[in-house]
Each structure stands twice: as C-alpha cells, then as structure tokens.
Amino acid sequence: MGIFNKLKNMFIDNTKKENTEITNKYDKGLEKTRIEFTSKLGKLSKKYKEVTEEYFDELEEILIMADIGVNTVMEFMDRLKKRVKTENIKDTEMLKEIIVDELFIIYVEDEILTTKINYNNNGPTIILFVGVNGVGKTTSIAKLAYKLKKEGKKVMLIAGDTFRAGAIEQLEEWGIKLECTVVKSNSKDPSAVIYDGLEKAKTENFDVVLIDTAGRLQNKINLMKELEKINKVIGKFIPNAPHETLLVIDATTGQNGISQAKSFKEITNITGIILTKLDGTAKGGIVLAIKEKVNIPVKYVGLGEKMEDLIPFDIEKYIYGLFKDMI
C-alpha cells in the first residue's frame, strides 16, 4: 500500500509553508466533495464489516456519482473484485486502502506527470485555450495571467473569441484589472486577430501569450475546422507553437467529458486540462476517465472565484483531499 503510506507521510511531513497553503486550498475547495465522498466511504465500511455483493453495489454507486466514467468504474470494480478474491480480502477496512491505491493507479499508471508549463526558450510562449461553451476559458486565462504576472512575466492576452456577445469586452476588463495588454480586432475571423497578436508579441518581446477562443461544441464540424485553422496559423508564425494547448473542462461535466477530450485532441495537440468550478459539489471525476482513456493529464484546477484560485493539479493532493478523513 505504498501510495497510501506516501499520502500519510505527506500529511505528516508537510512542513513547508507554501505546500501547506496549497494543500489547505485543496482542502477548502474540495471540502464539500471530500465530506460527501469520504463520509460515504467511511459509512460504507461501517455498514458492511465484510465485503459483500451489496458492499460492491454501494461502492459502485459512490464512484458513478463522482462522475468517474461508467466504463472506468465498471473495469475498476472488476479489478477490485478480482483482487478481493485472489488476496482473500474480507475486511472492508482493508479494502478502503486498496480503493485509494487503485484509483491512483488509474490516473498515474507508469508515467511521470508534470504540471509545469512548457516554456519556449526562443521567443514568446504561446498558450491556446480551448473548450466547449461556458466552461470558464476566459476566467481561467485571467487567473493564469495573474499567476504569470506575479512571476514577473510580460503577458499578452489575445481576444480570439470573436463570436460570443461580450466576450471581447470580458477579456478587456480582465486586461485592465491585471494590467495586461489585450489584443483585439473588429474582424470576425479569429485567425486574423491571433496573427496580429503574435506579430506584436514577437516584436515587443512578450514572454507569454494567452489566446482565448470561442466556446465550441465538439461535434460542430465547421467550428472545429476553424480551430484547426487557428492552430495552423499559430504554428506557421511561430514554429512548434502553441507550446501548450489547454482544454478547459467544467467539473460538473458528466460522461460527455470523454468525448470532449477525444474530439479536441484530434484537432489540436492538447497538452493538459484545466478543471474548473471544483469548488462546488461536483467531483470532476471524469478527469480520471479522461486520463485513462485519452491520456490527457490535468494541469490546473479552479477552486474559487478569486484570481489566485487557480492551482497546479496534484493527484496526490487531489486524492488526499478526497480521502483525508480516512487517514
């Protein structure tokens, strides 16, 4: 039960102030999530001292209710049942640890995951934000810009959402608050304004360029083609750009999250996910399924409405946040 010990140690050894701060934020943001999830798992162990069919049924319900993904849950349940059988586990207390372990494995597998931004050493770093409508792309851009500015970077925002009413104004207002340059245009063609922005970024030596795009449902062929074009324009102007393409996903999203990840990955080189609105009651479990099925890791999570509420994703802390009460 290596992972579990690691989590325990982290809990004990966590003396660094910054680390604790982030952990606390996870704690706070995930409070509702954690209380529900862990108290449920705890209750389950109390209710069933022994591992029975009913125990598995209720466990399945808890996992499904966390939006973890029907296939992922079904496969997970099969693996768990197998382990219970071969290792002859009877005690539900013991199984609790295995559950955390197995969940961790789904996400991490054998990979080394990083949430660091892939910076361009040779000119501006281009970060493209994509996603369906209403997930929080523009707000996430503002939060990341705030973070980067605090690190002393020269940041530009490009208003590439030329479709939605008020989208450009929304980004402009953020630009004023954050004291960031915002590039916009009257053109309805997002590629045109992005081109203008990139040119300016090159000549005026910006460090990071954050590009907003219109929300698009992943089954709208024409809108996805438009995104493909945007991607091409960026790559033509700055080789190897965009250096990061972040897919923004709303934590309340259900099974459709997998389809979103698949479709956007086909068109662009998605390098990571920003999971937003995790401060509600939604568990955002679909990211576990996305990592397993589409292999896109989460880079940041949105844990509140304030500018500093965008936190690098840490699977250990995420699970720790979910299971703290158990340890």
Binding site: M65, D250, G254, Q255, G257, T281, A282
Partner: peptide
C-alpha cells in the same frame, strides 16, 4: 452536459 452533480444543483 452535466453529470451526476445535477441532482445537487
């Protein structure tokens, strides 16, 4: 597109 959290909302 909302998932299981719909009921809480």
């Amino acid at each position: 597109m909302i998932g299981q959290d719909a009921i809480n909302v």
